[in-house]
Amino acid sequence: MADQLAIGSRRGLKPALPLLLPAYLWLTVAIFLPLSAMVFFSFMTDLPLAGKDWAFTLGNYAAFFSQGLYATLMLASLRLGLEVTLWCIVIGYPAAYVLAKVLKGRSREAIFLLVILPFWSNGLVRIFSWAMVLREGGILDTALNAVLPFKINIDLMYSYPAVIIGLVHSYVPYMVLTCYLTLQAIDDSLIEAGRSLGASRRQVLWRVIIPLSMPGLIAGAALIFVPVVGSFMEPRILGGRTGTFYGTVIEDQFVAVFNWPLGAALSFILLAVVLIILALAAPVLRRAG
């Protein structure tokens, strides 16, 4: 593969331009321009709508540091991202292992379909269906009371666990897919070689399979952690009053309070924090992979 790369680079960038341009043009128009506008907004005192006066200010950024509430919410969101990522690993990795190494043929396709199903349903529908399951007198409550001999009261709705459940459900497919890809690339003979050398299945898992699937775990974790930290839909609908996170505050600025400059500034602070976390984690993760 190194040889192929060398040949590619010798040919230079020019022949690759027609292939690269559409994607980069699209990225420029669809992401870079709006994002630039947001950067601009984040330094304004007010929106320049309906002839309102505005000026440049750093006040939106200063608000984050002057009010402890924002930092507290940021920490809560980071904790939420960490917890959801961990649950996705705990639930997704074994599933990916079974898909990649145990199941073959038809049964693999069927299980795969079930994993991808959340992608095919609308996010709001998914969240409201959880609301029906989790609320008091809802599906979970009724079902458990029908089975159990004693009366219990299940009302998970509007709680932190409900937010976790909803987010894990939305994001676990990413972990399954990225881990499945790296696990599938691990040759079965490596597992057999490990066992022939006297390693138990558990030792083979920790010393061979997990290190070799680390790139998939890292990719999955990054794909989940970043959007979960900024999530607002699941916390708002499933969390109710307890569901106030950094993401919901940003959403409020845009939708309810109509303070776009503050919302934009809070967004960029979040972006910076996430980038710092990923940069700090990179060397550690690279060594592990």
């Binding site: 040759d187 003979s189 070689a193 022939s196 050398l197 006297g198």
Partner: peptide
């Protein structure tokens, strides 16, 4: 894993994440 055999595979099956010495050390280290 309990038979105390040594096996060489057709595609060698060396652990790509480990150095040559770590590959050879694997059986002793487990």
């Amino acid at each position: 894993e309990k038979r105390r055999i040594g096996m060489v595979f057709q595609n060698y099956a060396l652990f790509p994440n480990m150095s040559v010495a770590d590959n050879v050390a694997f059986g002793l280290s487990v």
